[in-house]
């Protein structure tokens, strides 16, 4: 017993001050890519060609990056002959509508809070059932992390629960393999209404690296009404927590990143 107490003393208080203070992310952290597309040479498609998930489109409407497909890898950064793409430290990435993830390289419209009526129901207590539908274990790991003392999402009233019957919504990871389609739909159906659907990671949003495979459904968007998209590969736990709190209207700050 005394050893457990001594260990407890040694381990100390480790919960982040977030959202009051934002912890320092590593300098190589790959957050929101910033693209200076005004300086792109005409007809250069090197970044688009290098992108493993074809997330980049360049046409007469200019440069567009679909963050729902983006793996936040460095392939486009390395491919750009003029070094116009860089990853910022910006970890806030979540949006409410799929089209808001298509990003011009400068400003991203972040998720708005739920309407007031729904917020009254979920704002102070949100129970979520997680369904991995072809998820690789990485998204799941960084969702699990939210339950640790570091992020402690329980202090915001958010919790993962074991049964869909106890849940207010589901959190989907993975590209939705055909073999998980029925189980995902059954789980969703078992959650009492009103209910939320949150898609976490490139795979759940667009199929990610598996996009176009016969074995998957390119994310959950075609099967379920998604209320919150959290991009990343996998998203950093802070990105996920930011998205959840934004959805619940618990962050008081502007809804746009630049």
């Amino acid at each position: 017993m005394i050893q457990a107490l001594l260990a407890r003393l040694r381990q100390g208080h480790r919960t982040l001050a977030y959202p009051k203070g934002v912890p320092t992310l590593p300098d190589r952290f790959r957050g929101l890519p910033i693209v200076d597309s005004s300086r792109c040479p005409a007809d250069c498609r090197d970044c688009a060609n290098a992108c493993p998930t074809d997330a980049i489109a360049i046409d007469d409407r200019g440069f567009r990056l679909d963050l729902g497909r983006c793996l936040f890898c460095t392939d486009c950064v390395e491919a750009c002959p003029d070094g116009l793409i860089r990853h910022s430290q910006e970890y806030r990435l979540s949006v409410r509508r799929r089209e808001d993830l298509v990003y011009d390289g400068r400003t991203l419209k972040l998720a708005e809070a739920l309407d007031q009526k729904t917020r009254r129901i979920f704002g102070r207590s949100l129970k979520l059932r997680q369904v991995s539908a072809g998820g690789s274990g990485a998204c799941e790991a960084d969702l699990n992390v939210l339950g640790t003392v570091v992020f402690d999402m329980g202090r915001f009233g958010i919790q993962f629960v074991a049964s869909p019957r106890h849940a207010d919504g589901i959190v989907v990871t993975g590209p939705v393999s055909e073999n998980m389609r029925t189980a995902l739909l059954d789980t969703y159906a078992a959650v009492p209404a009103p209910k939320l659907v949150i898609a976490v990671g490139a795979e759940a949003i667009s199929g990610g690296i598996f996009r176009g495979h016969d074995e998957v459904h390119d994310g959950c968007g075609a099967l379920l009404p998604v209320d919150l998209f959290i991009p990343g590969w996998p998203p950093h736990p802070l990105t996920i927590l930011d998205g959840l709190l934004r959805l619940l209207g618990r962050l008081e700050e502007p809804g746009q990143t630049a």
């Binding site: 992108c51 493993p52 072809g134 998820g135 993975g174 495979h213 074995e215």
Partner: peptide, 22 residues
Amino acid sequence: GYQHRGVSRALVGGPKKRTVHL
């Protein structure tokens, strides 16, 4: 088998730009 995403099939014909990410 619930997690089957077609990884082996997609690797055939590689290395492609997706391969290392897969």
